[in-house]
Amino acid sequence: MTGTGVLPAQEIRALIDSGAIELDAPLAEGQVQPASLDLRLGDVAYRVRASVLAGAGRTVAGRLADFEMHRIDLKPGAVLEKGCVYVVPLMERLRLPADIHAVANAKSSTGRLDLLTRAITDGGVEFDRIRAGYDGPLYAEICPRSFSVLVRPGQRLNQIRFRRGQAVLRDPELRALHDAVGLVAGGPAVISEGLGFSVGLEPDNGDLVGYRAKPHADVIDLDRIGGHDPAEFWEEIRTDKGRIILDPGAFYILVSRESVHIPPDYAAEMAPYLAMVGEFRVHYAGFFDPGFGHDAAGGTGSKGVLEVRCHEVPFVLEHGQVVGRLVYERMAARPETLYGAGIASNYQGQGLKLSKHFRAP
């Protein structure tokens, strides 16, 4: 057994071997990441009237009986329509030990498609939070926000991270770590309940600073990696003024000003910044694995891509404005493989970049 903190890949595999994580199908290649496990869609989707949690003492299946509108067979492929809510049983089930709890989050590519995906459990009173000792099935609640998507069983839209105890770095520890190894470059280290990061709206080359989702685009086939034309789905956002105005309800892909570094013995999660900084939300997909932006893993200069949705009123966003924070945690042990080092890591060394489903513009 390793120590307190986020469980690495080798201990996730041990949980599978022990039956603490049960699989409906054999483990897929690349499913175990350095500090997380990808979760796979099952064979059926339930279209429901509204987003709903099971609640204490109740099951997701029981809630589906109350709110199900119809069922969709995913085996031949099926479209999940923009603006609708679906619940999909996953291929993974948990029998967690009493000292291990878990948190789920959307994968990076899922967030960059504005595909709201959250894990729900029997007895759950929060999205994406799985209590220690949980014994039961896992479900994904999926709500496509900007684009309808074609999905099939086995596709991986969200991921789960396992923890033993709590190992979040306090601000003094985070400052010491930054002084020792450098956690950001290209901007100051703003440390306050995590590591703050800001938006980059002054690109090094040209005036392209981001993308805005088109409101009436075609369906995205999630199996067509690199097969979609960005121009059919995204409007380019260009400026030489160092600022843009966010439109209410619109979805944007932007990039951080700073390059981010996650050392091998740590993991990080992106958390919302104070609501008072503006009428927008940043980043649906929040896990940063050990080795992201790490020199030895080929990640020098990795920036954080920001998924931004504006709320009720237009809002001026300016270069260098702090928009979010990274919460760092210790790993229970160093993972056997780092992000970007010999595994399928689509966003190591990235700058402004759409999801892997689009051709390079």
Score class of each variant (00 low, 15 high):
residue 84 C to I: 00
residue 334 R to W: 07
residue 73 D to M: 12
residue 118 R to S: 13
residue 331 M to P: 03
residue 9 A to C: 03
residue 57 G to N: 07
residue 55 G to A: 03
residue 256 S to H: 13
residue 39 L to I: 14
residue 286 G to Y: 10
residue 339 Y to W: 14
residue 43 D to V: 06
residue 361 P to G: 14
residue 107 K to C: 06
residue 138 L to T: 02
residue 303 K to H: 14
residue 130 I to A: 07
residue 42 G to H: 09
residue 51 S to A: 15
residue 289 D to W: 03
residue 196 G to Q: 05
residue 301 G to D: 02
residue 301 G to A: 01
residue 196 G to S: 06
residue 186 G to A: 12
residue 233 F to Q: 01
residue 265 D to H: 08
residue 268 A to K: 07
residue 315 F to D: 06
residue 304 G to Y: 02
residue 37 L to F: 12
residue 57 G to Q: 07
residue 34 P to D: 06
residue 328 Y to W: 08
residue 323 V to F: 08
residue 352 L to V: 02
residue 105 N to C: 04
residue 285 A to F: 05
residue 133 G to C: 11
residue 274 L to G: 15
residue 18 S to H: 08
residue 263 P to F: 12
residue 287 F to Q: 09
residue 67 F to L: 15
residue 27 L to M: 05
residue 356 K to T: 11
residue 145 R to F: 13
residue 262 I to T: 08
residue 176 A to S: 09
residue 150 L to W: 01
residue 19 G to M: 06
residue 247 D to N: 11
residue 64 L to A: 07
residue 300 T to W: 11
residue 54 A to K: 02
residue 36 S to W: 12
residue 180 A to H: 09
residue 350 Q to L: 01
residue 188 P to D: 14
residue 248 P to E: 14
residue 335 P to R: 08
residue 35 A to G: 01
residue 171 D to N: 11
residue 257 R to D: 11
residue 242 G to W: 09
residue 330 R to G: 00
residue 100 I to F: 06
residue 104 A to H: 12
residue 38 D to Y: 07
residue 133 G to H: 14
residue 66 D to V: 06
residue 46 Y to G: 00
residue 169 L to P: 10
residue 121 T to M: 09
residue 270 M to P: 04
residue 344 A to N: 11
residue 256 S to M: 10
residue 180 A to T: 09
residue 278 G to D: 05
residue 106 A to W: 06
residue 190 V to R: 02
residue 112 R to L: 15
residue 134 Y to G: 00
residue 230 P to M: 08
residue 46 Y to W: 09
residue 304 G to I: 04
residue 268 A to W: 09
residue 260 V to I: 15
residue 227 G to H: 04
residue 138 L to S: 02
residue 182 G to C: 05
residue 35 A to E: 01
residue 316 V to W: 04
residue 78 A to N: 00
residue 291 G to W: 13
residue 9 A to F: 03
residue 146 S to A: 15
residue 3 G to A: 10
residue 253 I to C: 02
residue 17 D to V: 04
residue 174 L to T: 08
residue 205 N to W: 12
residue 345 S to D: 15
residue 121 T to L: 08
residue 172 P to K: 07
residue 201 L to Y: 08
residue 96 L to A: 11
residue 174 L to H: 10
residue 142 I to C: 04
residue 123 G to N: 09
residue 186 G to T: 11
residue 276 M to Y: 14
residue 233 F to N: 00
residue 72 I to M: 00
residue 293 G to A: 07
residue 250 A to E: 15
residue 288 F to S: 05
residue 45 A to Y: 00
residue 8 P to N: 03
residue 233 F to E: 03
residue 236 E to Q: 15
residue 316 V to E: 12
residue 47 R to Q: 06
residue 361 P to A: 11
residue 326 L to A: 15
residue 311 H to R: 02
residue 37 L to H: 13
residue 335 P to L: 10
residue 224 R to S: 14
residue 232 E to A: 03
residue 156 R to D: 11
residue 134 Y to F: 15
residue 328 Y to F: 15
residue 73 D to E: 15
residue 61 A to H: 06
residue 181 V to F: 04
residue 70 H to F: 10
residue 325 R to C: 07
residue 297 A to G: 10
residue 129 R to V: 14
residue 322 V to M: 07
residue 142 I to N: 05
residue 280 F to S: 02
residue 278 G to S: 05
residue 100 I to E: 02
residue 154 G to H: 01
residue 70 H to K: 01
residue 99 D to F: 14
residue 254 L to H: 02
residue 190 V to C: 00
residue 250 A to W: 12
residue 55 G to R: 08
residue 201 L to A: 03
residue 120 I to G: 12
residue 190 V to F: 01
residue 204 D to M: 13
residue 278 G to M: 05
residue 232 E to N: 04
